[in-house]
Structure formats: structure tokens, C-alpha cells
Design a protein around this nucleic acid. Structure first.
Lengths: 233, 233
DNA sequence: CAATTATACTATACCGTATAGTTTCTTTAT
DNA sequence: ATAAAGAAACTATACGGTATAGTATAATTG
């Protein structure tokens, strides 16, 4: 009984771009992110790669190391929002488009990693912490830069650099207001299709709230229209 | 060779308050929440309860059912913030104490359930969804009520009921601004000790931002300090 | 020679069931 | 009443079957 499925054996072809290691990482990533660490077996990875088990152990000392390698690689490949551009005329439009782009990107790319790092926070504490810290820092940096840009466009105000620190806090708030709620719902299994229907109005709402706090002179859409407000006392 | 460890065997005493079932659920909860579904074995649970394996299977049809039972019970036992009171003189103080209480409560009670429901969102989709939806709804309801109260105390304004819907949105924002970031950091393994040091200033900051958006006339602490603020042009 | 494959193997872990024995509560017969 | 019989709930232990991490061996190919 010879090989039954694939006649491919022995040394890999010279042009096996990337090679076995990448195939192993790809397969492992797919399974780990979909089913978690404990429920993904080396045999499955071996079959999916495809790569024989000994080969896997030749490249990685064990399952844990493979998981760690997969996660680092996945994290490195995540979008960092630095390429995003601000579209729209008003500040509100700009921020809405930014929020939408961020949410979309995270929903299609990062859900698996986030779930995996949270699920395995006990088994791989350092990995989980590092991922979260790195993701936060990178996203805050990028959003912070974009917020500065929006601000600079709106009113030429060159005294900005002083508030760099504060501006990062503001960027963090922007992300927490818009991205986190959606992220949490997605992590709990809400399907993208259901989300998308509410997304636009949700983001618009949150951007409105965000601007209410940032722009003192802005009419306050959130609580109640200014006109209706009787002097409160 | 008779029983070596515990002489307790056979039919349970009539006043065996709670009984084996509770012991099983307790043990299962401890393990499931700490190590996840796949990494907790029935044998371990049996040993920890303590309860023999047949007994476990007499009470629950299988591991999945046991997990589901554990999660429902855990969810039912979660604090729903309804007993919380508003302390402090100013609105700011009231909201700060509310935020602190909520964050504290979630950090020491709910982390495990949240992690588990997220981790097993693929295996138990309904459970995960239901948990998230219920938790959201309950917390929003409670916070919403407390916000109304704070508002009513501040300015006697009995026209409130009209804005019920909006007020729930506001409560949701309050939670998203204050609870979610801390929750996410905790889920990624940040130790409570590290968090506590920043907590006070973080919550104060977020409450400030929240109020900036809600109270039009409020001085905007967020953007720049009140004292430092030169008339902004 | 170097990388890889197929295959078989070891050792363990785990779910779920089966068997037999123990203790306590409840019912029934006297 | 009280003793015997039975039912109920549990324990300890072992077993079947499967899955899984990791290793060993020999064959194959560039």
C-alpha cells in the first residue's frame, strides 16, 4: 500500500515559495483562531497544512511554541490603521468614516486573535498581555495622529503639539466609545450581518457624543435639543 | 480494605443542605471558569467536588449540559447593580462612585464568566449570546435608573420619563466608557493590583468626559485644565 | 546529505458506562 | 412501636473506546 492521496513526498520543490513552515503556520493559525488552543490538534494541523507530524516537530519544539509563533505572526500582520485616510467634509463625517473603517477592519481581521488571546490568558499570560498592550498602543497612536489631522484641518491651531499626551487619551476614548462595544458583541458571537444593520447609526451616534464632549460650542444633539431646554433650576 | 479517606458514603443525610449537586456545580464552576471547557476534565471535577463520576452523570447528562448548567447558575448569581446607591455630593462624585462600584464588582465577580462565554462562543453560541445580551440589558437598566436619579436630584425636572429611550443610550455610553476598557484589560490578564493603581484617576477622567458631553454648561476639564484655560480665542 | 513523508508506536488523558458495594431514609408487617 | 425489607443516593473502581502530544523508523527525493 503506497501513498494514497498525494504523491508529493520527499524534499520540497525549489520554488515552494515560503516552504513548509509557512504552510504549517497558516494551517495552525486557521485552526487555533477558529477552535482555540486545546481543541486544535497537531494531527489536524498536519492534515490541513499539509505537512507530516515529524516535520512540524522539526520546525517547532511543541504545540505551545507553535501557538506562540502563530500568534506573534498574526499580531504582526494586523492592520494598524496607519494607512487610513480621513474622508468627508465635516469633522463629523471624517470621524464617522474613520470609526467605520476601524470597526470593519477589526471585525474581519482581528476577532480570532482577540478571542484566542482572551481565552488563553491563563495558559499564555505574557502573550495575552503583550498583544493587548501592543494593539492598544498602535491603534491609539494611529487614531491620535488622525484626530490631530482632523483638528488641524478644522482650525489652524499650531499650538497643538503641547497636548500630545492628552490627545492620546482622546484617541483612546474615541476607540473605547466606538470600537469596544462592537468588539465585545462580536466576541460573544453576534454575526457580522446583524451588526452591520445597526452599525451606521451606532457610529453616527457615538461620534455625535464624542464631539459633544470635545467641542464646547457644538449643539448638543445627544441629550436634548438646546431649544427645548428650560433653564434647569 | 475499607474507605480510606472520608467515611461519608451512601445516601445523603436529610439535612445535607444543598447536596451533591451543588458541590458538583461549585467544583465545575471553579474549574470551567479558571481553565475553560476543554481543559477541565470530569475526573478533575469529580475529585474536587468531591463526587464520584457516576453521580455526576446521574445529575447531568454530559459535560456540555454540566457546562451549560454551571454558566446559567453563575449568570443568575451575578450582581446586577440594582442595589447600588449613589454616594457623594456633586453629580461628578455620584457618578465616580457609581463607576468605581461597577468596575470593582465586575472585576471580582464576572471576569471568569465573560472569559468563558467568549472563549466558547463557537461551541455554545446561544449561551454566549444570551449571556451578553442579558448582562447588557440588566446593567443598562440599573445604570439608567441611577442616572435618572442623579439627574432628578440635581434639578427637579419631572418631565424626564419622555426620554427613557435616550437615557438608556446614555447609560450604555457610561458603561462603555468606564467599564469596557477595564474589562478588556482584565480579560487579557492584567492583574487587579496593577489596575487598581490607575483606576481612580481613570474613572475620574472618564466621568469628566462623560459629563462634558451631557452637561453643556460644564467647564471642559477634558480638553485642557480649567485654570490653564485662556479664553480659547 | 538534507528535508520531508508515511507510518507505526508510546504513553497518557479523557468521556461515558458498568459493576458492585455502602449507607440512610421510608415503608410495611407484625 | 419496632424490626425487616426495600428504595434511593452515593462511593470506589475498572473498563471500552477514542483522541492526543510527541517520538521513532524507514523510505523518498532533490
Amino acid at each position: 500500500m503506497v501513498s494514497r492521496r498525494s504523491p508529493k513526498r520527499g524534499r520540497p520543490l525549489k520554488d515552494d515559495a515560503g516552504g513548509v513552515q509557512v504552510r504549517i503556520l497558516d494551517a495552525a493559525q486557521q485552526l487555533f483562531l477558529a477552535k482555540g488552543y486545546r481543541s486544535s490538534s497537531i494531527d489536524e494541523i498536519s492534515e490541513l497544512a499539509p505537512a507530516s507530524k515529524p516535520t512540524i516537530y522539526a520546525h517547532f519544539p511543541g504545540k505551545q511554541a507553535l501557538f506562540a509563533a502563530v500568534m506573534s505572526r498574526t499580531i504582526d500582520g494586523l492592520t494598524d490603521f496607519h494607512g487610513f485616510m480621513l474622508e468627508g467634509r465635516t469633522v463629523e463625517d471624517k470621524l464617522t468614516s474613520l470609526g467605520t473603517a476601524i470597526v470593519d477592519s477589526v471585525i474581519d481581521e482581528s476577532l480570532g486573535v482577540v478571542r484566542a488571546t482572551i481565552a488563553e490568558a491563563q495558559r499564555f499570560p505574557e502573550l495575552s498581555r503583550n498583544f493587548h498592550d501592543a494593539a492598544r498602543e498602535r491603534s491609539v497612536r494611529a487614531v491620535s495622529r488622525l484626530l490631530s489631522e482632523a483638528d488641524r484641518e478644522r482650525a489652524r491651531d499650531p499650538e497643538a503639539p503641547i497636548h500630545t499626551r492628552r490627545r492620546q487619551d482622546t484617541a483612546q476614548i474615541f476607540l473605547d466609545l466606538i470600537l469596544l462595544p462592537i468588539l465585545l458583541r462580536s466576541l460573544h458571537g453576534e454575526r457580522p450581518a446583524e451588526l452591520r444593520s445597526e452599525l451606521a447609526s451606532f457610529i453616527k451616534d457615538r461620534v455625535g457624543f464624542f464631539l459633544s464632549a470635545c467641542e464646547p460650542d457644538r449643539p448638543h444633539r445627544h441629550k436634548r435639543a438646546r431649544a427645548n431646554r428650560p433653564s434647569p433650576s
